[in-house]
Write a protein that binds this DNA or RNA. Structure first.
Length: 884
DNA sequence: CGAACTACTTAGTAGCCCCTCG
DNA sequence: CGAGGGGCTACTAAGTAGTTCG
């Protein structure tokens, strides 16, 4: 819609200035991240000719057993794409670290208007927020996608600031989202060893807000405006990459090998059509915010299904939990034409055929336990143990220097299970007076021995292992040789639950063939059971699932452990792609979704209000949905399972979150929210106790697609806004920075490495030394100017007589060195709790990355390592103009 | 309906390996 | 050329969500 055009330039500015802040962990860390966005770690990769996914031509069963994996494996044509872009792989490794990027914050000087705006939206708007929103919702959203897209392409929180004023100019943003106040993210890892909040840990950093020193070139070659345009065109152009895709082996294999094709979201031509249709459709319907969101989301796939001639199964309507949500959304909604055509998208696990032929060799079991005979001391005296008892004792002994060894639950659980093996009348009656040191020492010794082996011996050993495992490593799926992921059965051990897991320390017993169910093609030979005299529990021929084998988890007998194909397999690539496509689809509906939930913030129906607020939180904060959990799991929560005590309302409109999320990672974040949300939260809390559910009327609602959508857009946006001309290293830094931001949003954390402190102090020490050098040099310089010889050095030796110029140069050099170390330290500090890998693997649509690499002539293997290249093989021939 | 079951993705981490730096 | 730091891989725990069952 025409309305947008004038607004755009502003938008561009807004983004540049404000967004970044929004995404930071607030507190020092966030600022640091923002300010010194340089990323030190180069992701340099070795050039690897094999980067493409390995796909064999038709492979015979025999190939499975061939000893050379490479011989039979034919590289897909995709590999060549990858290869072609290889460029001086090594060069980059060391240089990458030093390119400082200007940080987004740097720009804040220009942001005056924005600041005003944000305040405006926070305070002034008591009642007007709602009104305004309503009116903005009513705005026809667009007739022509481009302008709108530009907005849409920016993640919600990124837009939080700054758009309000536009409303006053009559350029009302279509999305309510645009008015959301800024998010300040602060995430603190719960960390036994290091409990202080990040904020305090980061005190040392000097330059919050000062790093503006960098010349500010945010408005570089790629002003957002143009980027947005590209986005727009990319949208209508989607077919390009998609079409290309259909040519790829990944798909080829399916179309020519199997008579029944799996319906695919992304590859079917129907989808393309659908894409176009949906974009168009939206322009017509966008104010149709009564349509249940879920239905709108589903609409696209559904229509694609309809169009698709290869569609084989009409999928069922939405799932129960989601249905619930849908229903609730629906309560106040009218039925729209869309609701009728709602069908489930063809996604995994839905009874669809996943393969036609499947051949594999089953799984490999860990070798039987070899008793070592080393005795532990009970009350100071050596104790004889049976091999079984010794095995479990060794498991425990070996964990001596982990945190687990101290944990009460862990010890108790271990003791309970070990005791059963010892028997009631065993000498050992108390764990506390068991001394496992001898076993521990023995183990350390073994490790050392292994280390000391010669390279040749090591190699031989490795080859031996490979030979044994070779045949388990590959499966033939529809005639294509694919890697198997976890073909090794999990060895026995003590359960290492994360956080305060109630079962932590329990014995995870050995899995035997009689625990394992095999899934294999009907006509394929059943794999031989690798342990003589035993047999598989069951053999199935279920081609609606992708697992090759499973067994029941000994810790949680109700749950399963599956053996799947590796991430690089086409089956996985397929669902990966579907995931990204789904999220991409959401783009078309996000307006409506946001409009819908914003409207419901003030709904009379409490359930609806809860849904609205929860959805908002997921959308805005990228929270996990949060399923119900049993008592025998760690006590963690997601959005829908938040407890009253996890959220604190801080006047006038802030919410402070504090809870343990997935993997018992603590999520701490204080966020400004819209007033209605704030009020709603207070209402939800009233009359409840601390550990009551905040959203008591709510079931899990669909969250993850939001998460992806949001992150993709943000990532792409970051990449584009930050990318300017520069050398390879600078570009890599840009990429890594964007990556980091996503990781921060996702709260992807890692434990601080044990040596972190040591490393830091080492660097500090170095700086001090260098500073001393400078002092000395300065003295010498002073003397040299006066024509005096330099002072003797610390050892009393005479130094060379240098010219003042030479001395000056030296001082400069030293200063540079110090700068560099400081930057390194900063970066280390910034990323010490951030795990970059996860987001790269799971959240960043590789096509965004690949397209970006192509546009900026960055060889893809600088960004993706070998396994990522394999995993993302399907994305390699994306069009350079691809936009999410 | 809601709980249970099933399937599959997401995630942190241990430990090895390799590369860099001194 | 040896130590140590960082990167990568393998491993497996911990999520989500669709489907089925009672």
């Amino acid at each position: 819609m025409a309305v947008q055009a004038p607004a755009k330039p502003n938008l561009v500015d807004d983004y540049d200035e404000d967004e970044p802040i929004v995404f930071k962990r607030s507190n020092p860390i966030s600022k640091q991240n923002q300010l010194n966005s340089e990323v030190k770690k180069p992701l340099s990769q070795k050039p690897d000719g094999q980067s493409g996914r390995q796909i064999s031509d038709r492979v015979s069963l025999n190939d499975l057993n061939s000893s050379s994996q490479k011989g039979k494996v034919v590289q897909s044509n995709r590999a060549s794409v990858v290869k072609s872009s290889v460029a001086s792989p090594k060069a980059s490794a060391s240089s990458a670290k030093t390119t400082p990027l200007k940080s987004p914050i740097t720009n804040s000087k220009t942001s005056t208007s924005l600041d005003g705006q944000s305040k405006f939206s926070l305070e002034k708007n008591k009642s007007s927020i709602i009104k305004e929103e309503k009116s903005s919702i009513k705005q026809p959203i667009r007739s022509d996608s481009h302008s709108e897209d530009s907005e849409d392409d920016i993640p919600l929180s990124a837009r939080l600031k700054g758009s309000t004023s536009q409303g006053s100019k009559g350029l009302v943003k279509p999305t309510t989202a645009s008015k959301l106040p800024p998010v300040t993210k602060s995430v603190v890892k719960e960390d036994d060893s290091d409990n202080e909040p990040l904020s305090s840990r980061f005190q040392m950093k000097p330059n919050v807000g000062t790093s503006g020193s960098k010349p500010n070139d945010f408005n570089d070659k790629k002003p957002l405006l143009s980027i947005n345009k590209q986005n727009g065109s990319a949208m209508t152009d989607v077919k390009k990459p998609l079409n290309t895709n259909t040519k790829r082996p990944l798909d080829r294999e399916k179309s020519d090998q199997s008579s029944v094709k799996r319906p695919k979201l992304s590859d079917s031509p129907a989808l393309l059509k659908n894409k176009q249709v949906s974009v168009k459709a939206e322009s017509k319907v966008d104010d149709d915010d009564h349509v249940p969101i879920s239905q709108r989301i589903k609409k696209s796939p559904a229509s694609s299904n309809k169009l698709s001639t290869t569609k084989q199964k009409v999928t069922k309507p939405v799932s129960s939990s989601f249905k619930k949500t849908t229903k609730k959304f629906k309560k106040g909604a009218k039925n729209s034409k869309y609701s009728k055509s709602t069908k489930l998208s063809p996604s995994s696990g839905d009874g669809q055929k996943k393969w036609t032929t499947l051949i594999h060799n089953g799984v490999i079991f860990p070798p039987p336990y070899q008793p070592h005979g080393v005795k532990l001391l009970y009350n100071g005296k050596p104790v004889d143990l049976t091999p079984v008892q010794e095995e479990v004792a060794t498991m425990f002994a070996v964990m001596k220097d982990t945190d687990y060894a101290e944990k009460k639950t862990f010890r108790e659980n271990f003791w309970n299970d070990w005791r059963k093996l010892l028997g009631k009348n065993h000498v050992i009656q108390k764990l506390d007076i068991c001394d496992f040191t001898p076993i521990y020492d023995w183990y350390q010794n073994e490790k050392e021995k292994k280390k000391q082996m010669s390279a040749d011996e090591k190699k031989a050993l490795k080859e031996e292992k490979l030979k044994q495992e070779e045949k388990y490593m590959w499966a033939i799926v529809d005639g294509v040789k694919e890697k198997v992921g976890n073909f090794r059965v999990e060895p026995p051990g003590l359960f290492r639950g994360r956080g305060e897991h109630p079962k932590s320390g329990k014995l995870k017993r050995r899995i035997r063939p009689s625990d394992v169910t095999i899934n294999i093609g009907k006509d394929a030979p059943v794999p031989e059971c690798p342990i003589p005299g035993e047999r598989w529990k069951e053999v199935r021929h279920d081609n609606t699932v992708t697992w090759l084998a499973f067994w029941n988890d000994p810790i949680n007998p109700k749950e399963f452990k599956y053996v799947f194909l590796a991430a690089s397999s086409s089956l996985k690539g397929q669902s990966d792609k579907e995931k990204y496509e789904k999220a991409r689809m959401l783009k078309d509906y996000i307006h409506n979704i946001r409009a819908a939930y914003t409207k419901d913030f003030t709904s009379k129906d409490v359930t609806k209000r809860q849904i609205a607020v929860a959805t908002y939180l997921i959308d805005k904060l990228a929270l996990r949905a949060g399923n119900e959990k049993d008592d025998d799991e760690a006590d963690t929560v997601g959005c829908c399972t938040l407890k009253v005590e996890n959220v604190k309302a801080i006047a006038p409109n802030k919410l402070e979150f504090n809870f343990l999320g997935k993997d018992s990672i603590r999520y701490e974040n204080t966020v400004e929210v819209e007033l209605p949300v704030y009020k709603a939260i207070i209402q939800f809390q009233s009359g409840k106790k601390g550990n009551d559910d905040l959203f008591d009327l709510l079931d899990t609602i669909l969250g993850f697609i939001f998460l992806f959508f949001y992150l993709f857009l943000f990532f792409q946006w970051q990449l584009n806004r930050e990318t300017k001309d520069g050398d390879l290293e600078e570009k890599k830094t840009v990429y890594n920075t964007a990556n980091k931001q996503v990781a921060i949003i996702c709260n992807h954390q890692r434990t601080i490495s044990k040596s972190h402190e040591a490393q830091m102090s080492k660097l500090m020490e170095k700086i001090r030394e260098l500073e001393d050098v400078i002092k000395e040099l300065e003295v010498d310089l002073e003397r040299a100017r006066k024509g005096k010889p330099p002072l003797k050095d610390a050892d009393g030796k005479t130094k060379r007589n240098l010219s003042p110029e030479a001395l000056g140069k030296k001082i400069n050099q030293t200063n540079t060195k110090i700068e560099k170390i400081k930057r390194d330290m900063q970066n280390k500090e910034d990323t010490k709790t951030v795990a970059l890998g996860t987001s790269k693997i799971n959240y960043l649509d590789p096509r965004i990355t690949v397209a970006w690499c192509k546009r900026h002539e960055v060889p893809i293997e600088k960004i993706f390592n070998k396994s990522l290249l394999a995993k993302f093989a399907w994305s390699m021939d994306v069009d350079p103009d691809f936009r999410f």
